[in-house]
Computed example of a mutant assay.
Amino acid sequence: MFFDYHLHSHFSADSDMTMDELCQAAIRKGLNEIAITDHHDIDYQDDTIEFLIDKDKYLQEIKKMQKKYENKLTIKKGIEMGLQSHILKESQLYLKDDFDFVIGSFHTVEKSDLYNGDFFEGYSQWESYIKYLKTVSKVVRKYDNYNVLGHLDIIRRYGDFENKPKLLENKEAASIIESILKTIIQKDKGLEVNTSGYRLDGENPLPSFDILKLYYELGGQILTIGSDSHKTKDIAQKFDYTIQKLKEIGFEELTTFNKMKAIPHKI
């Protein structure tokens, strides 16, 4: 019983994997259910790439895959929505009631891109980390049309810094993270466990296990697991190991979604 709830097809500008290739690989790897979650980032701050999806074409292609693999794989209509504080109304209008599952992610902060490094200019490492977390905190207090926060500590992946410390090592960062977690718990939102994090330090998903432990201690229960795959080889990466670690923390369930409603599954 495995579910990969973070997968990117060629509808994401940074993936060449077709939906058909994605589905076939998921079946080969023994997955029962997937959510295809391509990137939609309104007002993305890098002119060299565009993360905008033609929703009608996208949903039609997912529907085609659902029909083709209906007896082999459950396929949910998902999306990874790039959230920014100034485009929340536009995000709400785009999503409407058309999806089973929405990841709320932050790839751009203060109208500056994380990936290309623009966001970090003029800030120290911890100054940039704190600014990122304050933005996440501000948005989750105001906005509700998502199911889980994507790769909460993704900020550690970026920036030209020699070390990539865990965010809970800093007192101010830890306080903001605790506030974010309390907010999403109160609003019945969850966290994704993103196994692409192992490609950063070899030891942790995103968010790191210490943040996941804090989420559990605060009463958080809604967790999805996703590989953030842009290539077939990364689908379901280290799921067995990750689920065992989640059990050791105390988690007893993973969550899937149907029409934005959470469905818990014992692990």
Results as ranks from 00 to 15, higher is better:
residue 4 D to K: 08
residue 5 Y to N: 09
residue 6 H to T: 07
residue 8 H to M: 10
residue 9 S to E: 15
residue 10 H to V: 11
residue 15 S to F: 14
residue 17 M to K: 13
residue 20 D to N: 15
residue 26 A to L: 03
residue 27 I to W: 06
residue 28 R to W: 03
residue 33 E to Y: 00
residue 34 I to C: 01
residue 35 A to Q: 04
residue 40 H to R: 06
residue 40 H to E: 05
residue 41 D to H: 13
residue 46 D to A: 13
residue 47 D to C: 00
residue 48 T to M: 05
residue 52 L to C: 01
residue 57 K to Q: 09
residue 61 E to L: 02
residue 63 K to L: 12
residue 65 M to Y: 08
residue 68 K to Y: 07
residue 72 K to F: 13
residue 72 K to Y: 12
residue 74 T to G: 02
residue 75 I to T: 08
residue 75 I to V: 12
residue 77 K to C: 10
residue 77 K to R: 14
residue 78 G to H: 07
residue 80 E to D: 10
residue 83 L to H: 00
residue 84 Q to V: 00
residue 84 Q to C: 04
residue 87 I to H: 00
residue 88 L to F: 01
residue 90 E to M: 02
residue 91 S to V: 08
residue 97 D to Y: 15
residue 97 D to M: 15
residue 102 V to N: 07
residue 105 S to G: 11
residue 106 F to M: 10
residue 107 H to L: 06
residue 109 V to R: 01
residue 110 E to T: 01
residue 114 L to V: 10
residue 116 N to V: 08
residue 117 G to N: 07
residue 120 F to Q: 10
residue 121 E to S: 11
residue 123 Y to F: 14
residue 124 S to R: 07
residue 129 Y to N: 05
residue 132 Y to D: 01
residue 133 L to C: 00
residue 143 Y to K: 02
residue 147 N to V: 00
residue 150 G to V: 12
residue 154 I to P: 00
residue 154 I to V: 12
residue 156 R to K: 15
residue 158 Y to H: 10
residue 159 G to W: 12
residue 163 N to G: 00
residue 163 N to H: 10
residue 164 K to M: 08
residue 166 K to L: 14
residue 166 K to V: 11
residue 168 L to C: 05
residue 176 I to S: 02
residue 180 I to Y: 07
residue 181 L to R: 08
residue 184 I to L: 10
residue 185 I to Q: 09
residue 189 K to S: 03
residue 189 K to A: 06
residue 191 L to S: 02
residue 191 L to I: 06
residue 191 L to Q: 04
residue 193 V to H: 11
residue 197 G to W: 09
residue 198 Y to H: 07
residue 198 Y to N: 03
residue 200 L to W: 12
residue 202 G to Q: 14
residue 203 E to W: 15
residue 203 E to T: 15
residue 208 S to T: 13
residue 208 S to F: 06
residue 209 F to S: 05
residue 213 K to W: 13
residue 216 Y to S: 05
residue 224 T to L: 08
residue 224 T to W: 08
residue 229 S to C: 12
residue 230 H to K: 07
residue 231 K to W: 02
residue 232 T to S: 09
residue 233 K to V: 01
residue 234 D to Y: 15
residue 236 A to T: 05
residue 236 A to S: 13
residue 236 A to E: 03
residue 237 Q to W: 13
residue 243 I to P: 03
residue 246 L to P: 01
residue 249 I to S: 04
residue 252 E to A: 11
residue 260 M to I: 10
residue 261 K to F: 05
residue 261 K to L: 15
residue 264 P to V: 14
residue 267 I to H: 10
